Amino acid sequence: MIFDIIIDHLPYLFGGLWVAIQLLVALLAVGFVLGIALALAEVYGPRPLRWFGMAFERVFRGIPEIVLLLLFFYGLGDFYPIEPFPAAVLALGLRSTAYQSQIFRGVIQAVPRGQMQAARAIGMSRAQAVQNIVLPQALRQAIGPWTNEFSSELKATSLAYVIGVVELTRQGRYIISSTQGNILVVFAVIALMYFVVNWLGNRALYGLERRYAIPGYGETR
């Protein structure tokens, strides 16, 4: 029975899901840290940094994920050996950086300029004003649009199988090969697992958004 096969292979599917979640957390962390830095450089940096940020965004948003994965794994592999997992983190993490920097740039620019001027008027440096006044408000407002990035990157982790990352999709291919069929049911189970993780993640982020909503900025979910 097909359901017996699925139950027997559930440990492998959950193992692949765990790898996918690890990859998701790693690439979102890369995108979060570098995305904030890039957004600050574009908003407050000198012209060369702004140009660099714009060029970075356009390059990494304009190249398909699979091409980036192949480029970082096989391209970098010609000069320095790199394992599939860190190659996927770099490729997808830098792509996430480009998208997250847009999110953070938008919410930073949405903070009224008068607040920066008021902070400077009471003796704060620009760096202090950004750290203590601008970023706390901007990051709260970024939670809503960041849910879309979470969902997008969760789905992008499935592409890492092309360079050998043994995540959920590749585990599904292994099961199909070993059982010589059952494609529809196996991938239906995989789709359900992705859906559940995405739903739980979005629910958590919506709750976080409500908790840290800034009074006066309108209603949240």
Rank of each mutant, 00 (worst) to 15 (best):
R50G: 12
W51S: 01
G53V: 00
G53T: 06
G53Y: 05
M54T: 10
M54C: 08
A55N: 02
F56A: 13
R58D: 02
R58L: 12
R58Y: 05
R61S: 14
R61Y: 08
R61C: 13
R61I: 13
G62Y: 08
G62N: 11
I63N: 03
P64W: 09
E65F: 00
I66P: 11
V67A: 07
V67T: 12
L68A: 08
L68K: 06
L69W: 13
L69M: 14
L70Y: 09
F72M: 10
F72N: 04
F73V: 00
F73H: 09
F73K: 10
Y74I: 07
Y74P: 04
G75Q: 11
L76S: 10
L76G: 04
D78T: 14
D78G: 10
D78W: 06
Y80E: 01
Y80N: 08
P81T: 03
E83Q: 14
E83M: 11
P84M: 03
P84A: 02
F85P: 06
P86T: 01
P86L: 07
A87F: 10
A88R: 08
L90F: 00
L92V: 06
L92A: 13
L94S: 09
L94C: 08
L94Y: 13
S96I: 02
S96A: 15
S96Q: 13
T97F: 05
A98Y: 06
Y99W: 00
Y99P: 07
Y99L: 06
Y99N: 05
Q100D: 14
Q100T: 15
